[in-house]
Design a protein around this nucleic acid. Structure first.
Lengths: 104, 104
DNA sequence: ACCATGCGTCGGAGAACTCCGACATGTCAA
DNA sequence: TTGACATGTCGGAGTTCTCCGACGCATGGT
Protein backbone atom coordinates (compact mmCIF):
# COMPACT_ATOMS: atom_id res chain seq x y z
CA UNK A 1 0.00 0.00 0.00
CA UNK A 2 1.30 3.44 -0.90
CA UNK A 3 2.24 5.67 2.00
CA UNK A 4 -0.70 7.33 3.63
CA UNK A 5 -0.34 10.68 5.33
CA UNK A 6 -1.17 10.91 9.02
CA UNK A 7 -4.05 13.31 8.58
CA UNK A 8 -5.83 11.01 6.14
CA UNK A 9 -5.23 8.06 8.43
CA UNK A 10 -6.95 9.92 11.25
CA UNK A 11 -9.90 10.91 9.10
CA UNK A 12 -11.70 7.64 9.75
CA UNK A 13 -13.35 7.08 13.15
CA UNK A 14 -12.66 3.35 13.17
CA UNK A 15 -8.95 4.00 12.74
CA UNK A 16 -8.97 6.57 15.54
CA UNK A 17 -10.63 4.03 17.82
CA UNK A 18 -8.05 1.44 16.88
CA UNK A 19 -5.26 3.76 17.93
CA UNK A 20 -7.05 4.49 21.19
CA UNK A 21 -7.40 0.77 21.84
CA UNK A 22 -3.66 0.32 21.41
CA UNK A 23 -2.72 2.94 23.98
CA UNK A 24 -2.93 0.38 26.78
CA UNK A 25 -0.62 -2.07 25.09
CA UNK A 26 -0.38 -4.34 22.06
CA UNK A 27 -3.38 -6.34 20.95
CA UNK A 28 -3.94 -9.09 18.43
CA UNK A 29 -5.72 -8.25 15.18
CA UNK A 30 -8.69 -10.50 15.80
CA UNK A 31 -9.14 -9.18 19.29
CA UNK A 32 -9.22 -5.63 17.94
CA UNK A 33 -11.74 -6.65 15.30
CA UNK A 34 -14.06 -7.86 18.04
CA UNK A 35 -14.54 -4.29 19.24
CA UNK A 36 -16.24 -3.22 16.04
CA UNK A 37 -19.46 -4.04 14.25
CA UNK A 38 -17.45 -4.65 11.11
CA UNK A 39 -16.16 -7.65 9.25
CA UNK A 40 -12.73 -8.89 10.19
CA UNK A 41 -11.41 -8.02 6.74
CA UNK A 42 -12.57 -4.42 7.01
CA UNK A 43 -10.67 -4.03 10.28
CA UNK A 44 -7.66 -5.70 8.72
CA UNK A 45 -7.72 -3.14 5.95
CA UNK A 46 -7.92 -0.28 8.44
CA UNK A 47 -4.90 -1.75 10.18
CA UNK A 48 -3.11 -1.81 6.84
CA UNK A 49 -3.78 1.91 6.44
CA UNK A 50 -2.41 2.59 9.91
CA UNK A 51 0.60 0.48 9.07
CA UNK A 52 1.30 2.43 5.90
CA UNK A 53 1.03 5.65 7.90
CA UNK A 54 3.53 4.12 10.35
CA UNK A 55 1.12 4.57 13.22
CA UNK A 56 1.27 0.93 14.21
CA UNK A 57 3.84 -1.83 14.10
CA UNK A 58 3.05 -5.51 13.82
CA UNK A 59 4.71 -8.23 15.78
CA UNK A 60 3.89 -11.76 14.56
CA UNK A 61 3.81 -14.12 17.48
CA UNK A 62 2.74 -17.67 16.89
CA UNK A 63 -0.41 -17.55 14.87
CA UNK A 64 -1.38 -14.18 16.29
CA UNK A 65 -0.30 -10.81 15.08
CA UNK A 66 0.13 -8.21 17.78
CA UNK A 67 -0.22 -4.57 16.86
CA UNK A 68 1.75 -1.94 18.72
CA UNK A 69 1.04 1.76 18.79
CA UNK A 70 3.71 3.90 17.11
CA UNK A 71 2.74 7.39 18.14
CA UNK A 72 5.67 9.26 16.59
CA UNK A 73 3.92 10.37 13.38
CA UNK A 74 1.25 11.99 15.52
CA UNK A 75 3.85 14.59 16.41
CA UNK A 76 3.40 15.97 12.92
CA UNK A 77 -0.25 16.61 13.68
CA UNK A 78 0.67 18.21 16.97
CA UNK A 79 3.14 20.48 15.21
CA UNK A 80 0.61 21.49 12.60
CA UNK A 81 -1.94 22.18 15.28
CA UNK A 82 0.29 24.16 17.58
CA UNK A 83 0.21 27.53 15.80
CA UNK A 84 -3.60 27.40 16.00
CA UNK A 85 -3.76 26.63 19.68
CA UNK A 86 -3.40 30.27 20.61
CA UNK A 87 -6.54 31.11 18.62
CA UNK A 88 -8.88 28.61 20.17
CA UNK A 89 -7.60 29.29 23.67
CA UNK A 90 -8.29 32.99 23.22
CA UNK A 91 -11.78 32.05 22.05
CA UNK A 92 -12.42 29.92 25.09
CA UNK A 93 -11.08 32.54 27.44
CA UNK A 94 -13.50 35.16 26.18
CA UNK A 95 -16.34 32.66 26.33
CA UNK A 96 -15.50 31.92 29.94
CA UNK A 97 -15.41 35.61 30.78
CA UNK A 98 -18.83 36.04 29.23
CA UNK A 99 -20.26 33.26 31.38
CA UNK A 100 -18.61 34.68 34.49
CA UNK A 101 -20.27 38.03 33.85
CA UNK A 102 -23.71 36.46 33.50
CA UNK A 103 -23.34 34.49 36.70
CA UNK A 104 -22.19 37.44 38.78
CA UNK B 1 -23.93 20.45 3.03
CA UNK B 2 -24.11 17.88 5.83
CA UNK B 3 -21.89 18.52 8.80
CA UNK B 4 -18.32 17.41 8.29
CA UNK B 5 -16.20 16.29 11.22
CA UNK B 6 -12.98 18.16 11.91
CA UNK B 7 -10.68 15.22 11.25
CA UNK B 8 -12.12 14.68 7.78
CA UNK B 9 -11.89 18.40 7.05
CA UNK B 10 -8.17 18.29 7.87
CA UNK B 11 -7.54 15.22 5.73
CA UNK B 12 -7.10 17.31 2.59
CA UNK B 13 -3.86 19.28 2.12
CA UNK B 14 -5.55 22.12 0.27
CA UNK B 15 -7.91 22.66 3.17
CA UNK B 16 -5.04 22.63 5.66
CA UNK B 17 -3.23 25.27 3.59
CA UNK B 18 -6.39 27.36 3.48
CA UNK B 19 -6.57 27.35 7.27
CA UNK B 20 -2.90 28.29 7.47
CA UNK B 21 -3.48 31.16 5.07
CA UNK B 22 -6.25 32.48 7.31
CA UNK B 23 -4.12 32.61 10.44
CA UNK B 24 -2.86 36.09 9.57
CA UNK B 25 -6.32 37.53 9.14
CA UNK B 26 -9.39 37.27 6.91
CA UNK B 27 -8.97 36.93 3.16
CA UNK B 28 -11.36 37.06 0.26
CA UNK B 29 -12.29 33.84 -1.51
CA UNK B 30 -10.78 34.78 -4.86
CA UNK B 31 -7.60 35.91 -3.23
CA UNK B 32 -7.30 32.55 -1.48
CA UNK B 33 -7.97 30.74 -4.74
CA UNK B 34 -4.99 32.52 -6.28
CA UNK B 35 -2.65 30.62 -3.99
CA UNK B 36 -3.51 27.27 -5.55
CA UNK B 37 -3.08 25.61 -8.92
CA UNK B 38 -6.75 24.77 -8.84
CA UNK B 39 -9.89 26.10 -10.40
CA UNK B 40 -11.75 28.72 -8.46
CA UNK B 41 -14.72 26.43 -8.03
CA UNK B 42 -12.61 23.69 -6.50
CA UNK B 43 -11.32 26.11 -3.89
CA UNK B 44 -14.83 27.36 -3.30
CA UNK B 45 -15.92 23.79 -2.56
CA UNK B 46 -13.05 23.30 -0.14
CA UNK B 47 -14.16 26.46 1.62
CA UNK B 48 -17.66 25.00 1.82
CA UNK B 49 -16.28 21.92 3.56
CA UNK B 50 -14.40 24.08 6.05
CA UNK B 51 -17.58 26.06 6.60
CA UNK B 52 -19.61 22.94 7.34
CA UNK B 53 -16.93 21.86 9.81
CA UNK B 54 -17.25 25.34 11.37
CA UNK B 55 -13.56 25.99 10.85
CA UNK B 56 -14.18 29.22 8.95
CA UNK B 57 -16.80 31.95 9.02
CA UNK B 58 -17.74 34.06 6.03
CA UNK B 59 -18.29 37.77 6.11
CA UNK B 60 -19.84 39.19 2.92
CA UNK B 61 -18.48 42.66 2.29
CA UNK B 62 -19.38 44.37 -0.91
CA UNK B 63 -18.84 41.96 -3.71
CA UNK B 64 -16.15 40.12 -1.81
CA UNK B 65 -16.58 37.41 0.74
CA UNK B 66 -14.05 37.44 3.50
CA UNK B 67 -13.24 34.21 5.25
CA UNK B 68 -12.27 34.21 8.91
CA UNK B 69 -10.53 31.43 10.76
CA UNK B 70 -12.64 29.82 13.48
CA UNK B 71 -10.12 27.68 15.31
CA UNK B 72 -12.39 26.41 18.08
CA UNK B 73 -13.20 23.01 16.53
CA UNK B 74 -9.47 22.33 16.34
CA UNK B 75 -9.56 21.98 20.11
CA UNK B 76 -11.30 18.66 19.57
CA UNK B 77 -8.28 17.44 17.63
CA UNK B 78 -5.98 18.73 20.33
CA UNK B 79 -7.95 16.88 22.97
CA UNK B 80 -7.92 13.66 21.00
CA UNK B 81 -4.22 14.01 20.45
CA UNK B 82 -3.29 14.84 24.00
CA UNK B 83 -3.33 11.32 25.51
CA UNK B 84 -0.90 10.24 22.79
CA UNK B 85 1.54 13.07 23.34
CA UNK B 86 3.22 11.24 26.19
CA UNK B 87 4.05 8.34 23.88
CA UNK B 88 5.74 10.24 21.11
CA UNK B 89 7.63 12.45 23.55
CA UNK B 90 9.04 9.37 25.26
CA UNK B 91 10.06 8.09 21.84
CA UNK B 92 11.86 11.29 20.97
CA UNK B 93 13.56 11.43 24.33
CA UNK B 94 15.09 8.01 23.90
CA UNK B 95 16.12 8.87 20.35
CA UNK B 96 17.87 11.96 21.61
CA UNK B 97 19.66 9.97 24.29
CA UNK B 98 20.86 7.54 21.67
CA UNK B 99 22.33 10.35 19.60
CA UNK B 100 23.98 11.89 22.65
CA UNK B 101 25.69 8.60 23.38
CA UNK B 102 27.07 8.34 19.86
CA UNK B 103 28.43 11.87 19.93
CA UNK B 104 30.19 11.49 23.26
C1' DA C 1 0.00 -35.71 8.28
C1' DC C 2 -4.24 -33.42 9.09
C1' DC C 3 -7.31 -29.89 10.35
C1' DA C 4 -8.75 -25.69 12.80
C1' DT C 5 -7.44 -21.00 13.69
C1' DG C 6 -5.77 -16.28 12.85
C1' DC C 7 -5.01 -13.12 9.53
C1' DG C 8 -3.82 -10.70 5.09
C1' DT C 9 -5.32 -9.90 0.39
C1' DC C 10 -8.25 -9.91 -3.71
C1' DG C 11 -12.39 -8.71 -6.66
C1' DG C 12 -16.22 -6.13 -6.78
C1' DA C 13 -20.07 -3.02 -5.39
C1' DG C 14 -21.60 1.23 -3.81
C1' DA C 15 -20.65 5.60 -1.69
C1' DA C 16 -17.91 9.58 -1.14
C1' DC C 17 -14.24 12.74 -2.74
C1' DT C 18 -12.11 15.89 -5.95
C1' DC C 19 -12.01 18.41 -9.76
C1' DC C 20 -13.73 21.02 -13.74
C1' DG C 21 -16.53 24.11 -16.88
C1' DA C 22 -20.91 26.20 -17.11
C1' DC C 23 -24.37 28.78 -15.05
C1' DA C 24 -26.92 31.79 -11.52
C1' DT C 25 -26.90 35.50 -8.29
C1' DG C 26 -25.63 39.58 -6.21
C1' DT C 27 -22.68 43.89 -6.10
C1' DC C 28 -20.19 47.80 -7.63
C1' DA C 29 -19.01 51.36 -11.16
C1' DA C 30 -20.02 54.10 -15.09
C1' DT D 1 -29.55 50.39 -16.48
C1' DT D 2 -25.76 47.99 -18.16
C1' DG D 3 -21.65 45.63 -17.87
C1' DA D 4 -17.78 43.74 -15.35
C1' DC D 5 -16.53 41.31 -11.30
C1' DA D 6 -16.73 38.05 -7.13
C1' DT D 7 -18.48 34.08 -5.74
C1' DG D 8 -21.55 29.94 -4.78
C1' DT D 9 -23.70 25.92 -6.86
C1' DC D 10 -24.76 22.28 -10.27
C1' DG D 11 -23.94 18.19 -13.40
C1' DG D 12 -20.75 15.06 -14.59
C1' DA D 13 -16.31 12.46 -14.91
C1' DG D 14 -12.69 10.13 -12.81
C1' DT D 15 -10.66 8.53 -8.59
C1' DT D 16 -10.50 6.89 -3.99
C1' DC D 17 -12.74 4.99 0.22
C1' DT D 18 -15.13 1.55 2.69
C1' DC D 19 -17.05 -2.57 3.12
C1' DC D 20 -17.97 -7.48 2.29
C1' DG D 21 -17.40 -12.58 1.25
C1' DA D 22 -14.15 -15.66 -0.70
C1' DC D 23 -9.74 -17.33 -0.86
C1' DG D 24 -4.82 -18.36 0.39
C1' DC D 25 -1.17 -19.05 3.55
C1' DA D 26 1.04 -19.80 7.83
C1' DT D 27 1.06 -21.76 12.57
C1' DG D 28 -0.15 -24.81 16.29
C1' DG D 29 -2.51 -28.62 18.12
C1' DT D 30 -3.93 -33.55 17.71
Amino acid sequence: MADVDVFSALANPVRRKLLEALKDGPRAAGELAGDFALSRSAVSEHLAVLRSARLVREEPRGRHRYYHLEATPLAEVGEWLHPFEHYWRARMRSLRELLDEENS
